[in-house]
Simulated scan of single mutants.
Amino acid sequence: MDLPINPPLRPMLAKAVKTMPKGDLLYEPKWDGFRCIVFRDGDEVELSSRGERPLTRYFPELVEAVKRELPERCVVDGEIVLPKGSRLDFDGLQQRIHPAASRIKLLSERTPASFIAFDLLALGDESLMETPLGERRRRLVEALSAARAPVYVTPASDSYDLALRWFDEFEGAGLDGVIAKPRDTVYEPDRRVLFKVKHERTCDCVVAGFRWHKSGPVVGSLLLGLYNSEGKLQHVGVAASFSMKRRAELVEELRPYRLENLDEHPWAEWANQTEATVDRMPGAVSRWTGKKDLSWVPLRPELVVEVAYEGMEGDRIRHTARFRNWRPDRTPESCTYEQLEVPVAYDLNDILAGEATSPRTDR
Protein backbone atom coordinates (compact mmCIF):
# COMPACT_ATOMS: atom_id res chain seq x y z
CA MET A 1 0.00 0.00 0.00
CA ASP A 2 1.47 3.33 -1.11
CA LEU A 3 -0.83 6.25 -0.29
CA PRO A 4 -0.12 9.86 0.75
CA ILE A 5 -1.23 8.71 4.22
CA ASN A 6 -0.64 5.11 5.26
CA PRO A 7 -1.78 3.20 8.34
CA PRO A 8 -1.52 3.35 11.27
CA LEU A 9 -3.46 6.57 11.82
CA ARG A 10 -5.55 7.53 14.82
CA PRO A 11 -8.76 9.43 14.00
CA MET A 12 -9.55 12.99 15.03
CA LEU A 13 -11.81 13.01 18.10
CA ALA A 14 -14.54 15.08 19.76
CA LYS A 15 -14.93 16.35 23.30
CA ALA A 16 -18.30 16.18 25.05
CA VAL A 17 -20.23 19.41 25.60
CA LYS A 18 -23.54 19.88 27.39
CA THR A 19 -25.30 22.10 24.85
CA MET A 20 -25.27 22.45 21.07
CA PRO A 21 -22.48 24.90 20.15
CA LYS A 22 -23.01 27.77 17.72
CA GLY A 23 -20.59 29.31 15.25
CA ASP A 24 -18.97 28.54 11.92
CA LEU A 25 -19.68 24.84 12.27
CA LEU A 26 -20.79 21.84 10.29
CA TYR A 27 -23.22 19.60 12.15
CA GLU A 28 -23.46 15.87 11.55
CA PRO A 29 -25.46 13.06 13.16
CA LYS A 30 -23.40 11.01 15.61
CA TRP A 31 -23.50 7.44 14.37
CA ASP A 32 -23.39 4.57 16.88
CA GLY A 33 -20.97 2.04 15.46
CA PHE A 34 -17.26 1.30 15.08
CA ARG A 35 -15.07 4.26 14.09
CA CYS A 36 -13.11 3.23 11.02
CA ILE A 37 -10.55 4.80 8.69
CA VAL A 38 -10.60 3.15 5.26
CA PHE A 39 -7.35 2.96 3.29
CA ARG A 40 -7.71 1.93 -0.36
CA ASP A 41 -4.90 1.55 -2.86
CA GLY A 42 -6.41 -0.28 -5.82
CA ASP A 43 -7.22 -3.82 -4.71
CA GLU A 44 -5.51 -3.29 -1.36
CA VAL A 45 -7.98 -2.29 1.36
CA GLU A 46 -7.43 -1.87 5.08
CA LEU A 47 -10.14 -1.04 7.62
CA SER A 48 -8.54 0.45 10.75
CA SER A 49 -10.31 0.98 14.08
CA ARG A 50 -10.09 3.97 16.39
CA GLY A 51 -7.39 2.15 18.36
CA GLU A 52 -5.55 1.23 15.14
CA ARG A 53 -6.73 -2.36 15.35
CA PRO A 54 -7.43 -4.02 11.99
CA LEU A 55 -11.13 -4.54 11.25
CA THR A 56 -10.58 -5.80 7.71
CA ARG A 57 -11.09 -9.53 8.34
CA TYR A 58 -14.35 -9.00 10.22
CA PHE A 59 -16.14 -7.13 7.42
CA PRO A 60 -15.38 -8.82 4.09
CA GLU A 61 -18.55 -7.41 2.57
CA LEU A 62 -17.31 -3.86 3.25
CA VAL A 63 -13.94 -4.62 1.69
CA GLU A 64 -15.75 -5.53 -1.53
CA ALA A 65 -18.01 -2.46 -1.22
CA VAL A 66 -14.96 -0.20 -0.80
CA LYS A 67 -13.42 -1.60 -3.99
CA ARG A 68 -16.70 -1.06 -5.81
CA GLU A 69 -17.83 2.34 -4.46
CA LEU A 70 -14.80 4.35 -3.30
CA PRO A 71 -12.19 6.08 -5.46
CA GLU A 72 -9.25 3.93 -6.63
CA ARG A 73 -6.83 5.53 -4.18
CA CYS A 74 -8.18 7.26 -1.10
CA VAL A 75 -8.27 7.49 2.69
CA VAL A 76 -11.73 8.02 4.18
CA ASP A 77 -12.73 8.48 7.82
CA GLY A 78 -16.13 7.18 8.87
CA GLU A 79 -18.17 4.70 10.88
CA ILE A 80 -19.11 1.08 10.41
CA VAL A 81 -22.75 0.59 11.38
CA LEU A 82 -25.25 -2.24 11.18
CA PRO A 83 -28.74 -1.26 9.99
CA LYS A 84 -31.56 -3.51 11.14
CA GLY A 85 -34.96 -2.53 9.89
CA SER A 86 -35.58 1.11 10.72
CA ARG A 87 -32.72 1.57 13.23
CA LEU A 88 -29.11 0.77 13.99
CA ASP A 89 -28.26 -2.47 15.78
CA PHE A 90 -25.14 -1.95 17.92
CA ASP A 91 -25.55 -5.34 19.61
CA GLY A 92 -25.58 -7.04 16.23
CA LEU A 93 -22.51 -5.07 15.19
CA GLN A 94 -20.59 -6.30 18.22
CA GLN A 95 -21.46 -9.88 17.23
CA ARG A 96 -19.44 -9.32 14.05
CA ILE A 97 -16.17 -9.39 16.01
CA HIS A 98 -15.57 -13.13 16.08
CA PRO A 99 -12.40 -15.26 15.91
CA ALA A 100 -13.77 -17.97 13.60
CA ALA A 101 -13.48 -17.34 9.84
CA SER A 102 -16.57 -19.48 9.15
CA ARG A 103 -18.63 -17.39 11.56
CA ILE A 104 -17.34 -14.14 10.05
CA LYS A 105 -18.41 -15.33 6.59
CA LEU A 106 -21.86 -16.36 7.83
CA LEU A 107 -22.49 -13.08 9.66
CA SER A 108 -21.27 -11.00 6.71
CA GLU A 109 -24.10 -12.59 4.71
CA ARG A 110 -26.78 -12.59 7.42
CA THR A 111 -26.08 -9.20 8.99
CA PRO A 112 -24.16 -7.10 6.45
CA ALA A 113 -22.72 -3.83 7.70
CA SER A 114 -22.66 -0.37 6.10
CA PHE A 115 -20.00 2.33 6.01
CA ILE A 116 -20.89 5.95 6.72
CA ALA A 117 -18.22 8.30 5.33
CA PHE A 118 -17.74 11.70 6.96
CA ASP A 119 -14.23 12.89 6.11
CA LEU A 120 -11.81 12.62 3.17
CA LEU A 121 -8.16 12.53 4.21
CA ALA A 122 -6.45 11.65 0.93
CA LEU A 123 -7.42 11.30 -2.72
CA GLY A 124 -5.10 9.97 -5.38
CA ASP A 125 -1.63 11.31 -4.59
CA GLU A 126 -2.95 14.27 -2.57
CA SER A 127 -3.11 14.44 1.22
CA LEU A 128 -5.99 16.59 2.49
CA MET A 129 -5.08 16.54 6.16
CA GLU A 130 -3.96 20.19 6.07
CA THR A 131 -7.06 21.22 4.10
CA PRO A 132 -9.85 22.95 6.08
CA LEU A 133 -12.83 20.74 6.96
CA GLY A 134 -15.30 22.71 4.85
CA GLU A 135 -13.25 22.00 1.72
CA ARG A 136 -12.68 18.36 2.74
CA ARG A 137 -16.45 17.97 3.04
CA ARG A 138 -16.98 19.38 -0.45
CA ARG A 139 -14.36 17.03 -1.87
CA LEU A 140 -15.88 14.07 -0.01
CA VAL A 141 -19.35 14.69 -1.44
CA GLU A 142 -17.88 15.09 -4.91
CA ALA A 143 -15.69 11.97 -4.70
CA LEU A 144 -18.51 9.77 -3.39
CA SER A 145 -21.34 11.28 -5.44
CA ALA A 146 -21.97 7.98 -7.23
CA ALA A 147 -21.52 5.72 -4.19
CA ARG A 148 -24.31 3.24 -3.53
CA ALA A 149 -25.32 1.14 -0.53
CA PRO A 150 -23.74 -0.03 1.68
CA VAL A 151 -21.51 3.06 1.40
CA TYR A 152 -23.08 6.40 2.36
CA VAL A 153 -21.99 9.98 2.95
CA THR A 154 -23.27 11.28 6.27
CA PRO A 155 -25.75 14.18 6.21
CA ALA A 156 -24.19 17.51 7.21
CA SER A 157 -25.58 21.01 7.67
CA ASP A 158 -24.55 24.44 8.90
CA SER A 159 -28.04 24.95 10.37
CA TYR A 160 -28.14 25.12 14.16
CA ASP A 161 -31.90 24.57 14.16
CA LEU A 162 -31.60 21.48 11.99
CA ALA A 163 -28.90 20.12 14.32
CA LEU A 164 -31.29 20.50 17.25
CA ARG A 165 -33.94 18.63 15.28
CA TRP A 166 -31.51 15.83 14.50
CA PHE A 167 -30.59 15.60 18.17
CA ASP A 168 -34.24 15.25 19.16
CA GLU A 169 -35.36 12.90 16.41
CA PHE A 170 -32.50 10.67 15.27
CA GLU A 171 -32.17 8.84 18.58
CA GLY A 172 -35.29 6.92 17.55
CA ALA A 173 -33.24 5.44 14.70
CA GLY A 174 -30.42 4.33 17.02
CA LEU A 175 -28.09 7.32 16.62
CA ASP A 176 -26.73 8.87 19.79
CA GLY A 177 -26.32 12.61 19.31
CA VAL A 178 -24.76 15.28 17.08
CA ILE A 179 -21.17 16.14 16.18
CA ALA A 180 -20.26 19.82 15.63
CA LYS A 181 -17.12 20.45 13.55
CA PRO A 182 -15.36 23.81 13.06
CA ARG A 183 -15.27 24.39 9.30
CA ASP A 184 -11.73 25.75 9.29
CA THR A 185 -10.10 22.91 11.24
CA VAL A 186 -7.42 20.75 9.66
CA TYR A 187 -7.35 17.03 10.41
CA GLU A 188 -5.60 16.48 13.75
CA PRO A 189 -5.20 12.77 14.60
CA ASP A 190 -5.97 11.70 18.19
CA ARG A 191 -6.88 15.25 19.26
CA ARG A 192 -10.28 16.29 20.59
CA VAL A 193 -10.90 19.35 18.44
CA LEU A 194 -14.52 18.56 17.52
CA PHE A 195 -17.59 18.74 19.76
CA LYS A 196 -20.16 16.04 20.56
CA VAL A 197 -23.55 16.49 22.16
CA LYS A 198 -24.96 13.22 23.45
CA HIS A 199 -28.16 12.26 25.21
CA GLU A 200 -27.89 11.76 28.94
CA ARG A 201 -30.56 10.35 31.21
CA THR A 202 -30.56 8.86 34.67
CA CYS A 203 -32.08 5.69 36.09
CA ASP A 204 -31.93 3.71 39.30
CA CYS A 205 -30.32 0.26 39.07
CA VAL A 206 -29.58 -2.64 41.36
CA VAL A 207 -25.88 -3.26 42.03
CA ALA A 208 -25.53 -7.04 41.83
CA GLY A 209 -21.76 -7.43 41.57
CA PHE A 210 -18.48 -5.80 40.72
CA ARG A 211 -15.26 -6.47 38.83
CA TRP A 212 -11.77 -5.82 40.15
CA HIS A 213 -9.71 -3.11 38.50
CA LYS A 214 -6.89 -4.27 36.23
CA SER A 215 -4.33 -2.38 38.35
CA GLY A 216 -4.99 -4.16 41.63
CA PRO A 217 -7.43 -4.86 44.51
CA VAL A 218 -9.79 -1.94 43.96
CA VAL A 219 -13.19 -1.85 42.26
CA GLY A 220 -13.09 -1.59 38.47
CA SER A 221 -16.80 -1.44 37.64
CA LEU A 222 -20.20 -2.06 39.16
CA LEU A 223 -22.53 -4.60 37.51
CA LEU A 224 -26.02 -3.16 37.10
CA GLY A 225 -29.40 -4.85 36.93
CA LEU A 226 -33.05 -4.00 36.29
CA TYR A 227 -36.07 -6.17 36.96
CA ASN A 228 -37.95 -7.19 33.82
CA SER A 229 -41.68 -7.83 33.40
CA GLU A 230 -41.20 -11.43 34.58
CA GLY A 231 -39.64 -10.29 37.83
CA LYS A 232 -36.14 -11.47 36.88
CA LEU A 233 -33.08 -9.32 37.48
CA GLN A 234 -31.59 -8.62 34.04
CA HIS A 235 -27.95 -7.59 33.67
CA VAL A 236 -28.09 -4.21 31.88
CA GLY A 237 -24.49 -2.97 31.90
CA VAL A 238 -21.76 -1.51 34.07
CA ALA A 239 -20.91 1.75 35.80
CA ALA A 240 -17.26 2.78 35.86
CA SER A 241 -15.00 5.88 35.54
CA PHE A 242 -14.14 6.24 39.23
CA SER A 243 -11.05 7.89 40.65
CA MET A 244 -8.54 5.51 42.22
CA LYS A 245 -9.39 6.89 45.67
CA ARG A 246 -13.07 6.21 45.07
CA ARG A 247 -12.33 2.69 43.77
CA ALA A 248 -10.60 1.86 47.06
CA GLU A 249 -13.49 3.30 49.08
CA LEU A 250 -15.97 1.16 47.15
CA VAL A 251 -14.19 -2.03 48.24
CA GLU A 252 -15.13 -1.27 51.84
CA GLU A 253 -18.62 0.00 51.00
CA LEU A 254 -19.43 -3.19 49.11
CA ARG A 255 -17.79 -5.63 51.54
CA PRO A 256 -20.94 -6.22 53.70
CA TYR A 257 -22.89 -7.26 50.60
CA ARG A 258 -20.44 -9.81 49.17
CA LEU A 259 -21.80 -13.33 48.69
CA GLU A 260 -19.71 -16.38 49.42
CA ASN A 261 -22.30 -18.80 48.05
CA LEU A 262 -22.98 -17.98 44.41
CA ASP A 263 -25.99 -20.33 44.34
CA GLU A 264 -27.95 -17.63 46.19
CA HIS A 265 -27.33 -15.07 43.43
CA PRO A 266 -29.84 -14.45 40.59
CA TRP A 267 -26.99 -14.55 38.04
CA ALA A 268 -25.43 -17.81 39.25
CA GLU A 269 -26.04 -19.56 35.92
CA TRP A 270 -23.67 -17.16 34.12
CA ALA A 271 -20.77 -17.52 36.54
CA ASN A 272 -18.94 -20.09 34.48
CA GLN A 273 -19.60 -18.71 30.99
CA THR A 274 -16.67 -19.38 28.67
CA GLU A 275 -18.01 -18.02 25.38
CA ALA A 276 -19.07 -14.58 24.17
CA THR A 277 -22.84 -14.81 24.07
CA VAL A 278 -25.61 -12.60 22.79
CA ASP A 279 -26.71 -11.73 26.33
CA ARG A 280 -23.19 -10.69 27.40
CA MET A 281 -23.92 -11.57 30.99
CA PRO A 282 -21.38 -11.21 33.83
CA GLY A 283 -18.41 -13.48 33.21
CA ALA A 284 -18.84 -13.57 29.44
CA VAL A 285 -15.70 -13.39 27.33
CA SER A 286 -15.09 -10.09 25.56
CA ARG A 287 -15.31 -10.31 21.77
CA TRP A 288 -12.56 -7.74 21.39
CA THR A 289 -10.12 -9.26 23.89
CA GLY A 290 -11.00 -12.90 24.43
CA LYS A 291 -8.28 -13.31 27.10
CA LYS A 292 -9.42 -10.34 29.17
CA ASP A 293 -10.45 -11.28 32.71
CA LEU A 294 -14.14 -10.51 33.10
CA SER A 295 -14.67 -12.50 36.28
CA TRP A 296 -16.87 -10.81 38.83
CA VAL A 297 -17.66 -10.73 42.53
CA PRO A 298 -21.33 -11.37 43.36
CA LEU A 299 -23.17 -9.06 45.74
CA ARG A 300 -26.50 -9.45 47.46
CA PRO A 301 -28.83 -7.47 45.16
CA GLU A 302 -29.82 -4.97 47.83
CA LEU A 303 -27.98 -1.77 46.87
CA VAL A 304 -29.57 0.78 44.52
CA VAL A 305 -27.53 3.31 42.58
CA GLU A 306 -28.50 6.23 40.36
CA VAL A 307 -26.50 6.23 37.13
CA ALA A 308 -26.36 8.47 34.07
CA TYR A 309 -26.61 6.78 30.70
CA GLU A 310 -26.91 7.83 27.07
CA GLY A 311 -29.54 5.39 25.80
CA MET A 312 -30.62 1.78 25.55
CA GLU A 313 -29.66 -0.90 23.06
CA GLY A 314 -32.40 -3.49 23.34
CA ASP A 315 -32.67 -4.35 27.03
CA ARG A 316 -29.18 -3.08 27.95
CA ILE A 317 -27.63 0.31 28.61
CA ARG A 318 -25.65 1.45 25.59
CA HIS A 319 -22.00 2.05 26.48
CA THR A 320 -20.77 2.55 30.05
CA ALA A 321 -23.04 4.20 32.62
CA ARG A 322 -21.70 6.81 35.06
CA PHE A 323 -22.16 6.62 38.82
CA ARG A 324 -24.20 9.49 40.27
CA ASN A 325 -25.44 8.63 43.78
CA TRP A 326 -26.41 5.80 46.06
CA ARG A 327 -30.20 5.63 46.49
CA PRO A 328 -30.92 4.24 49.98
CA ASP A 329 -34.50 5.49 49.62
CA ARG A 330 -35.23 3.07 46.76
CA THR A 331 -35.96 -0.64 47.07
CA PRO A 332 -34.29 -2.98 44.58
CA GLU A 333 -37.69 -4.27 43.43
CA SER A 334 -38.63 -0.75 42.31
CA CYS A 335 -35.76 -0.71 39.78
CA THR A 336 -37.63 -1.82 36.66
CA TYR A 337 -37.55 -1.06 32.96
CA GLU A 338 -40.74 0.99 33.32
CA GLN A 339 -38.73 3.98 34.62
CA LEU A 340 -36.82 4.32 31.34
CA GLU A 341 -37.62 6.99 28.77
CA VAL A 342 -38.28 5.53 25.32
CA PRO A 343 -37.33 7.76 22.33
CA VAL A 344 -39.85 8.30 19.55
CA ALA A 345 -39.17 5.97 16.62
CA TYR A 346 -37.49 7.45 13.54
CA ASP A 347 -36.79 5.61 10.30
CA LEU A 348 -33.06 5.08 9.72
CA ASN A 349 -33.70 4.68 6.00
CA ASP A 350 -34.83 8.33 5.79
CA ILE A 351 -31.45 9.40 7.18
CA LEU A 352 -29.47 7.16 4.83
CA ALA A 353 -31.53 8.34 1.87
CA GLY A 354 -30.77 11.99 2.69
CA GLU A 355 -34.40 12.83 3.41
CA ALA A 356 -33.72 14.29 6.85
CA THR A 357 -31.70 17.35 5.81
CA SER A 358 -34.57 19.59 4.75
CA PRO A 359 -36.31 22.09 7.06
CA ARG A 360 -38.98 20.68 9.34
CA THR A 361 -42.24 19.68 7.69
CA ASP A 362 -45.20 17.73 8.94
CA ARG A 363 -44.19 14.09 8.79
Rank of each mutant, 00 (worst) to 15 (best):
V38Q: 02
P11R: 08
E44T: 08
A173I: 00
D161T: 11
Y187L: 09
V197L: 15
E130F: 06
F39W: 03
P282I: 04
R40L: 02
C205Q: 07
S159F: 09
G124V: 09
C203I: 12
L62G: 01
V76H: 04
L233W: 06
D89Y: 08
G23A: 13
A345S: 12
P266Y: 07
P54T: 14
L162H: 04
D279N: 11
K232F: 11
R324W: 02
I179K: 00
L140D: 00
P150W: 02
P182N: 03
V207I: 15
D77L: 03
L294N: 14
R363G: 03
I5K: 11
A173C: 11
R165Q: 14
Y337P: 03
G33S: 10
A122C: 05
T320G: 00
R183M: 13
M244L: 15
E130N: 14
V76D: 00
S48K: 00
V186N: 08
L222A: 07
P332S: 12
V153G: 08
E253H: 08
G33N: 03
K181V: 11
F167N: 02
P29C: 10
R87I: 00
E44C: 04
A248G: 13
L13Y: 09
A345Q: 13
A356Q: 01
A117F: 07
R316E: 12
P132C: 11
W166S: 05
L55Q: 02
G237F: 08
L352D: 03
I317N: 01
V219P: 00
G290L: 14
Q339I: 04
F170L: 15
G78F: 00
W288I: 10
T289R: 14
D263N: 13
A173N: 02
V141L: 01
W288K: 14
H235L: 08
L121D: 01
G237K: 03
S114G: 06
K30E: 02
K292G: 05
R53I: 02
V197Q: 06
R87G: 00
D190V: 02
E333S: 10
E69A: 09
R280C: 09
S127W: 07
E230L: 13
